[in-house]
């Protein structure tokens, strides 16, 4: 049995070994917040956090991340309250169709947890692994700057 710790909950799974983390999340556990928009590790829609770092779940073997701390989009709000990053994405109009949003939000969390005061270039670079076709990215930058301020209690 493989133990996966996802959003602070332990799942005991009988895996065969070739399952990607993405497959486990979406198809086995029904956590469909994590999306995928390509088959080539280019779109970033499958991004989850492993030990706080943004990684692509479509090219991560589930058995490779046994005992690691896995965070998906389902795990960052607490109770009824949205995480300030989620709130900022809504407030700044950074979400249109929403398909790419979970990936962006998690990468943002990884960025701000490590660097509470990113400049615009650092923000842009941290998102270089994500595709958004609807929005053109600018409102996402606004949302991240807004979330950073709120997290710094400014």
């Amino acid at each position: 049995m493989t133990k996966l710790k996802i959003n602070n909950r332990i799942y005991d799974l009988a895996l065969k070994g070739h399952e990607t983390l993405l497959e486990v999340l979406r198809d086995i556990l029904g956590l469909t917040g994590t999306k995928t928009a390509c088959d080539e590790a280019e779109c970033g829609a499958c991004t989850v956090l492993i030990n706080g770092k943004a990684i692509l779940s479509c090219i991560t073997l589930a058995m490779d991340v046994e005992n690691d701390d896995i965070t998906t989009i389902e795990g960052i709000s607490s109770g009824d309250d949205l995480h300030p990053i989620q709130q900022a994405f809504l407030d700044k109009g950074a979400v249109q169709c929403g398909f790419c949003a979970p990936g962006f939000i998690l990468s943002t969390k990884a960025l701000l947890d490590e660097n509470p005061r990113p400049d615009l270039d650092e923000i842009k670079k941290s998102l270089d692994g994500h595709l958004c076709r609807c929005g053109g990215y600018l409102k996402i930058f606004d949302a991240i700057e807004d979330a950073a301020k709120k997290l710094r209690n400014e």
């Binding site: 590790a41 692509l56 692994g129």
Partner: peptide, 9 residues
């Protein structure tokens, strides 16, 4: 190299 997520992996 590549993108942020790839650099992490």
């Amino acid at each position: 190299i590549a993108t942020t997520q790839i650099r992490n992996m």
